[in-house]
């Protein structure tokens, strides 16, 4: 070993802790203590945070939303029993990989919409009706919700969509056809629309 033993000892400790943390996540899930599981996924629109409750996918977050802040918010709003536990997210991660590879046009995973309430939830529930490769205007989405006057509220609901990409708020564009704003940034919105136009 080296003169002080620091590198090997610290490396061995980190390896042990990594293995123990994985085991903890596995046992937590077995014993119904894994209230919020999360992982990250590298995608063409940046690193996405994926989080799921036992009921389903509850949050997708872009890097620019600050993943640590998002996890703290999940701890506050859902449960502080939050662990990095990729297994629960395996299926949605695989579907997202297929989507970004251009071989999947819709997502088929259970969703937990508990982070969207009231009118925001109504918007999130109608967004999947905008199919892959198509777009709708904020005005059209307002009509879909049965509140045609609520165009601005639709904008707010899209901006605060807890499940971007999977619930396709990126398909909602301005009436003049320009993309408009997006929780993942304008570039990500243009990128997703281009991907779906291929």
């Amino acid at each position: 070993m080296s003169a002080t033993g620091v590198p090997e000892g610290v490396a061995a400790e980190r390896e042990t802790l990594g293995r123990l943390a994985q085991e903890l996540a596995r046992r937590a899930a077995q014993e119904d203590l894994l209230d919020v599981a999360y992982r990250t996924l590298d995608t063409p629109v940046g690193v996405l945070l994926l989080a799921a409750t036992p009921r389903g996918l509850v949050r997708v977050a872009y890097d620019r939303e600050d993943h640590d802040a998002v996890l703290r918010s999940l701890a506050d709003r859902l449960s502080p029993r939050v662990l990095r536990a990729p297994a629960r997210l395996d299926r949605v991660a695989a579907e997202l990989d297929e989507y970004f590879a251009g071989v999947r046009t819709r997502f088929d995973v259970p969703l937990d919409l508990s982070l969207a309430s009231g009118f925001r939830r109504a918007v999130v529930e109608v967004l999947p009706r905008i199919g892959f490769g198509t777009t709708a205007s904020y005005t059209q989405v307002a009509a879909l919700t049965g509140r045609p006057g609520a165009v601005r509220a639709v904008g707010t609901a899209c901006a605060r969509n807890p499940l971007p990409v999977v619930v396709p708020c990126h398909r909602v564009v301005r009436s003049d056809g320009t993309p408009g704003e997006y929780v993942g940034g304008a570039a990500a919105k243009v990128g997703l629309l281009a991907l779906e136009a291929r």
Binding site: E13, L17, L20, L71, R72, P80, V82, L83, R84
Partner: peptide, 19 residues
């Protein structure tokens, strides 16, 4: 008011000490 940190942060902060 701030509530609890995600438990993952607790493991990261104190896992080595407990080990």
């Amino acid at each position: 008011a701030a509530g609890h940190e995600p438990f993952e942060a607790v493991v990261a902060a104190h896992g080595a000490t407990v080990l």
